[in-house]
């Protein structure tokens, strides 16, 4: 049985109430939109990439606590990483929220690990990964909105 606080840890609630990197990004050169048609959530992600390094990442939109906190923590984590590192982080994060066994303690997640509780809530995995799928779309810049469905 899963407890409420396994999912809604204080750090998640804090990032939901006061998301980091929320708002438009001047000088952005990568952009993507993400939708979760199940709940109507919408997320817009903007990146400023210079010489292959993500200098700035910001997001806008309306979402639940899980998707908002995930976007907030993700944009924090992206800054200063190369595009290749960001893609690698996507894979690690995806395993964090979907893998039955969890991840090794030394996985390079930092504060992102707070979202590990989502694993116990299969109906909420799409909320946690919306920002990350939108990130991949922004990096690949195919211009198509991403959908969790």
């Amino acid at each position: 049985m899963s407890d409420l606080r396994d999912l809604y840890q204080e750090l998640i609630v804090d990032h939901y109430r006061r998301p980091h990197n929320f708002g438009p990004l001047a000088g952005a050169n990568r952009h993507a939109e993400g939708f979760n048609p199940l709940c109507g959530d919408h997320l817009s992600l903007s990146l400023k990439v210079v010489d292959g390094v993500i200098e700035e990442a910001r997001f806008e939109g309306a979402g639940c606590a899980i998707s908002t906190a995930s976007a907030s923590l993700m944009t924090d984590a992206l800054k200063g990483r190369t595009e290749a590192e960001a893609e690698a982080l996507f894979a690690v994060f995806h395993a964090l929220v979907t893998s039955e066994d969890g991840l090794p303690a030394d996985a390079p997640l930092g504060k992102l690990a707070v979202l590990a509780g989502v694993r116990e809530f299969p109906t909420r995995v799409k909320c946690a990964t919306l920002a990350w799928h939108t990130l991949l779309a922004a990096l690949h810049q195919d211009g198509q909105p991403v959908s969790t469905e």
Partner: peptide
């Protein structure tokens, strides 16, 4: 107010 319906649904489910 301050709680997304999706989160309301999860908390109620618990």
């Amino acid at each position: 107010e301050g709680v997304h319906p999706h989160d309301v649904g999860t908390i109620l489910d618990l």
